[in-house]
């Protein structure tokens, strides 16, 4: 009986057709098999990121643009925006989730267009360098941090073409770092990101 039901569902699906538009800006969350609170590492431009913030989970969501790249004055800033939640309460609709962003700034480095991001391909940034700074925002509370150590690794930065037309730049990589927040040490670990950068999330002014 279960098999018949199975087939009937397939026939029903077969009879439906969808004509809505779809684009690459959508987030596709495929969980990691080992760290199953985090998105799996990928290089497809799935527009997700995630990391452990001590024992909590800092992860992209479906409402915020996961990454904005800002080139301003003589610096480049990466703003990762999502939410922080407790792994024990893994309901993403829970009221206990809080908005969170992580702003990584690199001084003395400026981008002209988002295509310049290709320079980061296979590059690791030492976050303890004096030109690097990180600002954390949790529910509108802004925290300046003192970086103890850490790395931000751009494993792959690549051009994406669809049907032979350039569409965006895909940035994929890993990050881990430790910092002091209100004199308390905090670890961000097992961070990973896979995000497309195009006109809609690259800003230069």
């Amino acid at each position: 009986m279960k098999k018949i039901f199975h087939v009937l569902i397939i026939i029903t699906i077969f009879s439906l057709s969808c004509e809505e538009e779809y684009d690459l800006e959508k987030s596709v969350l495929i969980y990691d098999k080992d760290y199953n609170d985090l998105p799996a590492y990928s290089e497809w431009g799935y527009n997700t990121f995630g990391a452990y913030y001590d024992r909590k989970v800092f992860i992209s969501n479906n409402y915020e643009i996961p990454l904005k790249v800002i080139s301003y004055d003589n610096s480049t800033t990466f703003i990762f925006k999502g939410e922080i939640n407790n792994p024990a309460d893994n309901s993403y609709n829970s009221y206990y989730n809080e908005e969170m962003s992580m702003k990584l700034s690199i001084e003395n480095f400026k981008l002209e267009t988002y295509n310049d991001l290709l320079l980061f391909n296979d590059t690791t940034i030492d976050l303890s360098h004096p030109d690097c700074s990180i600002v954390i925002t949790i529910d509108n509370d802004i925290f300046e941090t003192v970086i103890i150590s850490g790395e931000f690794e751009f494993k792959k930065v690549q051009n994406l073409t669809v049907d032979n037309e350039p569409v965006e730049i895909i940035m994929s990589g890993l990050f881990d770092y430790q910092f002091l927040l209100n004199e308390e040490p905090i670890s961000v670990s097992n961070g990973r990101f896979d995000i497309g950068i195009g006109d809609e999330n690259f800003y230069k002014y």
Binding site: L24, W44, L118, Q158, N159, L160, T161, D163, I170
Partner: peptide, 14 residues
């Protein structure tokens, strides 16, 4: 989207 080619610099979807 189907991945047609991929190298160190670019990924091409069809």
């Amino acid at each position: 989207y189907l991945l047609n080619t991929q190298d160190a610099q670019a990924t091409e979807f069809l």
